[in-house]
Design a protein around this nucleic acid. Structure first.
Lengths: 109, 109
DNA sequence: ACAACATTTCTATATTAGTGGAAATATAGA
DNA sequence: TCTATATTTCCACTAATATAGAAATGTTGT
């Protein structure tokens, strides 16, 4: 991951509608949700949703899977993990205690 | 942390210049760097840097500390950790294995 | 082929963001 | 107070983004 990739990913999340879409998909898990289902749950016009899904897919944060007439979108956890690692890379010149430890402790506690 | 806070933080990072500033400060550690130092290292006009620092500070991602004529900016690791936690909240309906574990394993390995 | 449905692309509009020079503000030291 | 330095604010310009209706595309079952 380089700076340009990270900017694209962050940009795709830095918008109210898109962040809600992504969080919905994170909570939905690997199976994902159909586009129409997302539109209904978030009360969003189809064209607006499509615009945002395209942005998220372009960043690699969501992956589309066609199944019949439906297209299921799911969150790409590996891409998100890569982003998190990038954001805390070379943290504090090697003193990693001050950086992401809080998250890891919260997870393992 | 709510969606609006997260969008503000993500937005502050979703820009090439700002992401570079933040990463520089992450690597610099808690002591931070003076604004002029950042400008020199990133070869950026002072007014442009100031614009971006303001955005990062507004999001709470960097903290300014005045010391004489200099203003030292440092990364707010607690805010970043809060963001990471928010992004993976309620992940996969409880099956956390699929989410942030990769980051934590990489850190502890 | 046709009808029904799911999703995307096209189009126009309104709003917002990024840039950097010049001027203003703040601090320190003599 | 005067000067040098550090940083921010002001300003104008250029460009990009979010939105949603309407039309187009693709898919399924009959």
């Amino acid at each position: 991951m380089n700076t340009k990739d990270a900017v694209v990913i962050l940009f795709s999340l830095a918008q109210g509608a898109r962040l809600e879409i992504f969080r919905l998909l994170v909570q939905a898990g690997p199976a994902g949700l159909a586009a129409g289902d997302i539109a209904t749950r978030l009360d969003m016009p189809a064209s607006t949703l499509s615009f945002h899904l395209k942005e998220l897919a372009h960043a690699g944060l969501v992956k589309p899977l066609q199944s019949g007439r439906f297209i299921y979108y799911s969150a790409a956890f590996d891409v998100m993990n890569g982003l998190l690692a990038f954001l805390t890379e070379n943290c504090c010149e090697g003193a990693q205690d001050c950086c992401v430890s809080a998250v890891c402790q919260a997870e393992s506690a």
